[in-house]
Design a protein around this nucleic acid. Structure first.
Lengths: 346, 346
DNA sequence: TTGTACGCGTTATCAT
DNA sequence: ATGATAACGCGTACAA
């Protein structure tokens, strides 16, 4: 049997209560002499608290749950790492749940985390607005009020009463598309994300907004996904039809797939076509890809601090900023003379 | 307040014990009539078990802990995904701990996981044999006997009594290096992993074994790491000195960094130099990199099944097989006429 | 400042 | 087949 609080109490000739007060880090007043006695006995016995017993008494564990699409996707991994770093700084453990963007899996994990008395539950990533289980999840979310578990979403799901920490995905693609427009490109294609996913919808809207405000045509939208293959496929389609001036993709992976496919076909990126993505992954850096830096790690870390911090510091909606990262996969349109007289990307 | 077992008991006019037997899925005999009553009452009240109370009684939670280096490293992410998939199939939640290969962090997480009454703890990835905290960790590991928590390592740490599920890292690099030797290469360089890490040591030994058995010189070892930058740096060094016939790297990322650096310098890979890595990551696939497919996902999944399964099925040491994946980053040495009469990689 | 005793929600043992 | 009740290990009113 492991050594318990009462073992320490016996050894120190003190009551359970006193020992608990010292060892649980409560701010209860205990004389220095007895505190020493407790610490000494605890040391000698090698006492380790039973966090589960403690959790039962407190009605809450020192665990955080983060529901992601897939932890092998670096986007989610960064978020999870942010959560874990911020959580472990306060003594919390992080439970990672892979729901594959499946609302019913999300619901199941949500229930499990609730049953586990998790201190907080984070929903990372986008969602599918128009599927039935999404609504069932919302119903379940409302019932959290009765528990000590705090819930937070890293994408605005439009759920009443669920706080949000997120990026502005519409702005992300609007800014990126504007950047390409400023470079003189007119026929700009967009490689979409997964059909129906909120993130896809928002990013596509951002692309469309930027194009429309410049009186450009938004009909160059290619079906996609978030993976490399989607980029390859879309690029292959463009090669078979006609090449646009530039391509913006929903993610770096998609963009990278497109770049590689173009180059394998003998197309010069960026001289014949500019390509940009979203995320600023390490491979985007390696490939010298123009992209948008997303604060994924900070998303997880900040959300966690909000959950663990005092309720006051908890605003309903926090939007973190993104930043365009200009690299070598984009440059001026062929017919444009850059105002600075240089040919580097502006 | 959430609805508890006793609420269900009252509603069904039954004892706590009976209700528990039905709802906890025990194989205890209960008449069908009362079983129905329990289920009905439970449904009507929307009963959700308190897993923490259950865990206190059972002395074990339905959680698994996996201690990784860094979840944003796809190698660890794949393992974690394997663990989570196998665990969730049995109703377990997965706690991910990022220890950054720091033994004292590993120890701290290990203790926390024990305090949490985790059903199992998995150590993923390599370790540093020669640092003091590694020994302290070993001491702590021995004391697990007293708890219900099962421990398993995904790298052979040489700890007595700790079961291992792993790949044979020596063989991985021996096989890969042999492959390049068969292609006719003689001056084969090796880009090492992090200094002192067990995985690095083993892979390097595999490289050396293959070279020595072919009477080749093993002095072309470049210091490295597991990241892209290490590959870039090593390649830059080779460019400044003299180019070997081929390069094997400790990981795909390292190899990819080298390939990109070579190509930026105008070197043709594979015609002027062959490059190969280890992992078979999705970017290795994209870059058409010859590599070794490591069963990372299966490592996590199998280890988890062993932990959750009956103790009998639990052999002390399980080695999963790897597989060379021949792609376009390696080819025959310039002075070699392939026996098949073709210039494709053999 | 320290101690007593109950409660947290469930499982499991022992009766019935 | 069902019920009463003692753990499980800790936190925390309430007492002293």
């Amino acid at each position: 049997m492991a050594v318990s609080l009462s073992d320490v109490a016996k050894r120190a000739n003190l009551s359970l209560a006193t020992v608990s007060r010292v060892l649980s880090g409560s701010d209860y007043k205990v004389s220095n002499a007895t505190r020493e006695r407790v610490l000494k006995a605890s040391q000698e016995l090698g006492y380790r608290p039973n966090e589960i017993a403690r959790a039962l008494a407190r009605r809450m564990t020192n665990t955080l749950g983060v529901i992601v699409g897939d932890i092998t996707d670096s986007y989610f991994a960064e978020i999870a790492r942010g959560v874990e770093d911020a959580g472990s700084a306060d003594g919390y453990l992080t439970i990672v749940c892979n729901a594959d963007r499946n609302p019913s899996a999300e619901l199941a994990y949500f229930q499990m985390l609730l049953e586990h008395q998790a201190a907080g539950i984070l929903f990372a990533g986008g969602f599918y607005p128009d599927v039935p289980d999404t609504d069932r999840l919302y119903q379940a979310l409302k019932k959290v009020k009765g528990s000590n578990t705090k819930v937070l979403s890293l994408a605005d799901r439009g759920y009443d009463g669920i706080k949000v920490v997120s990026v502005d995905n519409v702005a992300v693609l609007r800014d990126l598309t504007r950047h390409l427009i400023k470079l003189g490109h007119r026929r700009i294609a967009y490689i979409d994300g997964p059909e129906g996913l909120s993130t896809s919808i928002q990013r596509r809207r951002g692309y469309e907004q930027a194009m429309q405000e410049a009186d450009l045509n938004t009909n160059l939208v290619f079906p996609g996904g978030f993976g490399i293959e989607s980029g390859r496929l879309a690029a292959a389609t463009m090669l078979a039809q006609s090449l646009p001036d530039a391509v913006v993709a929903a993610t770096d992976d998609t963009a990278i797939g497109a770049v590689v496919t173009f180059r394998q076909a003998g197309i010069d990126v960026p001289r014949q076509i500019s390509v940009a993505g979203v995320d600023d992954s390490k491979y985007a850096q390696l490939m010298n890809l123009t992209t948008v830096k997303l604060p994924t790690y900070e998303l997880g870390a900040l959300a966690t601090r909000l959950i663990l911090g005092p309720a006051e510091a908890f605003s309903d909606r926090t939007i973190l900023t993104h930043r365009i990262v200009r690299r070598g996969s984009t440059t001026w349109a062929a017919n444009v003379v850059p105002s600075g007289g240089t040919s580097r990307a502006g």
